[in-house]
Nucleic acid binder design. Structure first.
Lengths: 194, 194
DNA sequence: GTCTATACGAAGATAGAC
DNA sequence: GTCTATCTTCGTATAGAC
């Protein structure tokens, strides 16, 4: 489904480039020419592959990023260890921060915040967040956590990590994400022990 | 220091309008003409009051919003009840969401995310977040919470609420903030009881 | 399909009158 | 101080050639 590094068609490369650029600069500050340059795609092909223009590209990039992260969550969820799930979720975002000197964040957040009235983009972002929360809640329920508690813990997991990414970017330091990750781990550990 | 509703000079009105518009649309999507229209300020006065242009206005708006929220936190911190602090912090943001049909969020986050290389703006945002965390940590330490724990709990408080605001905006529903608020309250209650 | 050229509009910033 | 007019840049989108 998601191919990174391997041979891709121009359309897929553009989607991936868009996601990478959006998470650093946001949609508004990313020009279509930036996406073309970054992806190495032919100049004239953007409106061929994305007749809906920037909005369509943003929507596809949002879905791409949402599916990619959901895939990572699903993979670790199979281990049936919610604490490990928290840790690997946090680790994944720390890597994004580290690899970019704390300049890159979550593309879904970036897209969500300046999508304005482009409801297609916003809905794609909502779908991604809801799916991540659902996967986290499922993992907790599989360890006998009450459904309501699982739901609110899942919301806390996704919200606090996303917020911590923002704080880490602004402070140019992964410390907020590190602190939040530690708190989340112990909270989840207690919840599944109860 | 912060006057809302009362008589203000054009400069202050513009700063407040900028903060209000930024938290809905972000910096990039907010034109200076939007700020002039919203504030009712005279057209020719923007570069008179803000010689540095949009970047200077954004920096001042970030400081304004950061100070405003810090003032609210300080006011409730005097009651010496961290659980109440969490509740009123969450309530305040829920009101922002409700009053805007979940379209408005935190101006600091909005500014942080598309500030790019405008380091003055980013530094102002970092200062705001660090001060909020410091105030929360102080409130926890005043109730005998260990300094290290107070620090990580404070990071979790700010990060999770900020993240929850983003989720609530994207999902057009305050549910994520409500769930996170409830989890935070019980977590803080346990921390100060220990 | 991919390219170049260009139309069109938006927005930041400046100059100079009042 | 405030206003109008304008310059300039830039980005989306389109048209039409190859």
């Amino acid at each position: 489904m998601i191919m990174m590094g391997s041979i891709m068609h121009a359309r897929e490369r553009m989607i991936q480039s868009a996601a990478l650029l959006f998470r650093e600069r946001g949609i508004e500050a990313t020009a279509l020419s930036d996406v073309i340059e970054h992806s190495g795609a032919p100049r004239g092909s953007i409106y061929h592959h994305f007749p809906g223009g920037k909005a369509e590209l943003a929507e596809d990039a949002t879905r791409y990023a949402g599916d990619y992260v959901a895939g990572l969550i699903e993979a670790v969820a199979e281990r049936n260890d919610p604490v490990l799930l928290v840790r690997s979720f946090v680790d994944q975002w720390r890597t994004v921060l580290r690899d970019s000197d704390c300049c890159a964040g979550c593309p879904i957040v970036a897209v969500a915040l300046d999508s304005g009235e482009q409801s297609g983009v916003r809905r794609a972002a909502a779908a991604a967040f809801e799916r991540w929360q659902q996967l986290c809640a499922d993992a907790l329920r599989a360890k006998e956590v009450e459904p309501q508690r699982a739901k609110s813990l899942a919301a806390l997991m996704v919200a606090s990590v996303e917020g911590a990414i923002v704080l880490s970017r602004v402070q140019r330091d992964t410390a907020p994400l590190d602190l939040v990750g530690a708190e989340l781990e112990s909270l989840v550990r207690e919840a599944i022990a109860a």
